[in-house]
Design a protein around this nucleic acid. Structure first.
Ligand SMILES: [Mn+2]
Ligand SMILES: [Mn+2]
Ligand SMILES: [Zn+2]
Ligand SMILES: [Zn+2]
Lengths: 139, 139
DNA sequence: GTCGCACATTAGACACCATCCAAATCAGGG
DNA sequence: CCCTGATTTGGATGGTGTCTAATGTGCGAC
């Protein structure tokens, strides 16, 4: 995701220590962190970073299409840096664990014109829910 | 939905003016109201009903499977009395208008075993997003 | 019809998530 | 190196939802 920093600089982003740190936190393994979790991890690298800046930066990354907001959790929004490979989510109803999934077929194609009511449909979000192996054993 | 009141009484629900009013608000045309919107409409019929009771009652209706919680909105949960006919939702990204839709196919079947990661998958929520005719004209 | 009590309702406090704000700071072009 | 507009900051504010202790009530038992 160091490409990310390049791309953003190209778009006129002023580069600050805070923004670099937020980008670092989102980089690497596929995560689905809440804003608060991002803040906690960012503080570990840059103790004085504020919550407001984390929210600001996440909001900008979302506007720029570099990060997705996902609402799998009925509590806080989660931020998904895997924005360039379309995918959906599988969520454990018990513990909240989230996995990226890639279903067969295209759900957009499954919505016939007669069910579009004149909308211009541009996007579809699919959330599978179930019980993960860990929680199944515990039950 | 007066059947609903019968069904609930049969399940040992104590019938109160407050619960009757909440059921009335959800009855009729297919709506997707937030808890606060339900409260506002309930107050019109029974001025002294409290927010807490609306939340309690909605929670009970959800537990009983008579109402669905939908997360189309990234802000407040919405309550869907159309719980007995499986369907999904089409949401206007601009104005938030929600329509029930019935896509072809079964999204659950589109999730291959190799993409289930050992989860017992029981449910899928599909949200289509786009621009409604009204907002398209206004643009 | 009355009584009693388990269940239901209430107001308001509280918790959590997110946004807003005005003042201080800073990145980076000139 | 300076200047200026963009960025950051702590704290206030707002929206959504839960909890609690006090009060009220539906409805089965009699
Ligand atoms: Mn993801
Ligand atoms: Mn619906
Ligand atoms: Zn789990
Ligand atoms: Zn619209």
């Amino acid at each position: 995701m160091s490409d990310l920093l390049e791309r953003l600089r190209g778009r006129g982003w002023r580069m600050t220590a805070q923004r670099r740190v937020v980008a670092e936190v989102l980089d690497g393994e596929h995560v689905h962190l809440t804003a608060d979790e991002v803040h906690t991890r960012a503080v570990a690298k840059l103790p004085e970073i504020s919550r407001a800046t984390v929210y600001n930066t996440l909001g900008e990354l979302v506007s720029l299409g570099e990060v997705l907001e996902v609402a799998t959790d009925k509590r806080a929004k989660r931020y998904d840096p895997n924005a360039h490979r379309p995918h959906h989510h599988l969520v454990c109803a018990q513990c909240g664990a989230i996995r990226d999934v890639h279903p067969d077929g295209n759900p957009l194609a499954d919505l016939p014109d007669s069910e579009r009511f004149g909308f211009t449909v541009s996007d579809v979000e699919v959330t599978y829910r179930g019980i993960c192996p860990t929680c199944a054993v515990a039950a």
